[in-house]
């Protein structure tokens, strides 16, 4: 630990003021915070709560059902980020579909699924496009490339989400947000700055290394002590105020806003992205004449409340009993970035 990290650590551990609730919005933050044991540094009156920023966790259960339908009924090759494979749908996960003969391939990048489409000209290939502003450009680049190449056996199933309206839905659930650094790298800081100026919502953009997380947390605590609403960019080596303008332009060119269902938060107006009509040939729902598929979550699962910071994972009746990382019921237990999975794996329990 260098001097600055020690200084940041001291600010955090020696805080003695009023109770504070700080929400780390991003799932990768949740994961790193647990991996570093950062919560153990917090004094009793500082509560760090995990927000809805894990795309796997907030993806509606019906999306998994749609993917299974494409895999089993339409015999499509499904390409997906590995994170999604074990998420339970209404009847089964993609891993379950695979056991029934479906072809499900984890990929590192959506661009890799184009190669799979080219290698399998007699099969239909579908990429499962989940993720926030950080991830959406990769899906847009992929669709544009597919169009350039004239691929007729490739499409994407969209569940892309955007953060601004989710922040609105979360206003009041914490004293300050740790904003997701890699989302801001794309979107820039205007939305967060505006939340601060117009609604008095405080927050800092945080990076992901130990030093960056300690700094962001120390900054948050210090500024909360002062009592004025604030916004700070604590990740300037990656995040510029204007964000990535090319990526923003690309997303506008290929996709348009739509209403989107968030597990736990319900449908949020204009919080999703779908392909524009010019790219309809690459929209899996249109291409494969998909019926309206509605998922039914397990009623015992409280992922929804966990995602809003309304309850802790351990408050859920199935947590650690029916629902474990090996046999998950809810999405928050599946993803390594999910709050339930992190609580289960990183805390002592029977």
């Amino acid at each position: 630990m260098n001097e600055n990290m020690k200084k940041a650590r001291d600010i955090i551990t020696s805080y003695q003021g009023k109770p504070l609730r700080i929400m780390e919005v991003c799932g990768t933050h949740t994961h790193e915070i647990f991996r570093l044991g950062l919560r153990k540094l917090l004094p009793e009156q500082v509560d760090l709560i995990s927000g809805p920023g894990c795309p796997v966790c907030v993806t509606a259960i019906g999306f998994i059902d749609e993917a299974c339908w494409l895999a089993l009924e339409k015999k499509c090759i499904i390409c997906t980020f590995g994170d999604l494979i074990r998420v339970p749908g209404t009847k089964m996960s993609l891993a379950g579909a695979r056991a029934k003969g479906a072809e499900v391939k984890p990929v590192y990048s959506p661009l890799d699924s184009l190669a799979i489409a080219e290698e399998n000209p007699d099969r239909q290939v579908v990429f499962l496009a989940v993720g926030f502003e950080t991830t959406t450009p990769s899906a847009c680049i992929t669709v544009k490339k597919a169009k350039q190449k004239g691929l007729t056996n490739f499409s994407i199933l969209t569940a892309n989400k955007t953060m601004p309206n989710a922040y609105q839905a979360l206003v009041g659930s914490a004293d300050a947000f740790l904003y997701p650094g890699h989302v801001n790298a794309i979107t820039g800081n205007a939305v967060c700055q505006k939340l601060c100026n117009e609604q008095g919502v405080s927050g800092v953009v945080a990076g992901f290394t130990a030093g960056e997380l300690l700094t962001a947390l120390a900054t948050t605590i210090r500024l909360l002590e002062k009592g004025e609403p604030f916004f700070r960019n604590c990740y300037p080596r990656v995040v510029k105020d204007e964000g990535n303008l090319s990526a923003q332009k690309l997303m506008q060119e290929v996709m348009q806003p739509c209403d989107s269902e968030w597990r736990g938060l319900g449908v949020i107006h204009d919080s999703g992205m779908k392909l524009r009509s010019e790219f309809a040939d690459f929209d899996a729902r249109i291409k494969h004449d998909m019926p309206n598929i509605v998922g039914k979550p397990n009623p015992a699962c409280r992922c929804g409340e966990v995602l809003q910071g309304k309850c802790k994972p351990s408050d859920c009746k199935v947590f650690g009993k029916g629902c474990t990382p090996l046999h998950p019921i809810g999405a928050c237990m599946v993803s390594d970035e999910g709050a339930c999975s992190a609580y289960y794996q990183y805390t002592e329990h029977e």
């Binding site: 959506p110 890799d112 950080t134 450009p137 990769s138 794309i186 990535n244």
Partner: peptide
């Protein structure tokens, strides 16, 4: 991220 270079950065966080 996911096969796309999303930002030019400085290497170290120090």
């Amino acid at each position: 991220h996911a096969g796309v270079a999303i930002a030019k950065i400085t290497d170290s966080d120090e």
